[in-house]
Design a protein around this nucleic acid. Sequence first.
DNA 1: AGCCTTTGACCAGCG
DNA 2: TCGCTGGTCAAAGGC
Length: 295
Amino acid sequence: LFPDMPSSAFHGSFTQLLVGAMGSPAAPPSPPSPFAVPPGLSPTALVGPFPPTGNFEMSHQQALAQVTAQAVHSQYTVGSQADYSLPFSSATTSALTSQFINSSANVTSMKETATLPLHTVNDNLKSNEVSQGFQTSALTVDKPADDGYNWRKYGQKAVKGGEYPRSYYKCTQASCPVKKKVEHSAYGQITQIIYRGQHNHQRPPKRRSKDGGNLLNEDDFPENRDTLTRSEPGSQDHSGKVEVSNDGITGSSISKRRDGGDQSSGSSDREEDNDEAGDDNGDAGIVNANKRWFM
DNA sequence: AGCCTTTGACCAGCG
DNA sequence: TCGCTGGTCAAAGGC
């Protein structure tokens, strides 16, 4: 079904991690596991294809409630990966979010989400790359994430042979250095979202989204700011990576960057410059980052 | 009118 | 040094 899905689209260790951590509901999350990010490594959130469970039809409210409750309960054990705000909107966001939390905190609750329809998995594909088939209506290609912030697309590029267009977004807030990359599969479905930088501002006032009017902001995810978007003290990363499959989230994990160093930035617009300013996302200061955002 | 997307070009890093 | 790849710029057009 996805013959051309290069495994390179996802990064080896990453993928393995993910699979190990959440590939199977039966598989208990290895304790020290992927979430234990050693200092200096950049925690990367990986939300990949879950064993399809998702009750994608669940209402936003339901999902939200679920997320909230779980966030509270779990106290978000995966704090280190928390630098990102959850990027998805509406029902998908909720499902995603809940799964994110579920998988992060405790895989056992994965069952709450429903079953995934489709093309779940091409077993030949490795880990994350599987399940691209979710026929999503919530996840649209160019507005993949209404996470409460406003984004402006500033570029798009076909990468990996042109089969996987990648879109580049900047936070529209003046002086906010946050950027994100969104990768799509050849089918226009989101396969990966990578955040970079820290928002140095609060979420903008509610704004009706173009596609469906879902509003999503701080009010919608009160806990997010405390649990999902904050880095742990020791965390040095602020670049989040959220992989999404059409199946919904399939899991999350933390991965290391290529050289074990930290990720990201390094380019001229150093968001690190202001992050320590105590923003909610406080990224602990990346000192010397690679220019590459990920492996 | 302002903001956003699209898209080709340009630039920089890396092998 | 050169080609490839990825990231960004900026003009044009749309909403």
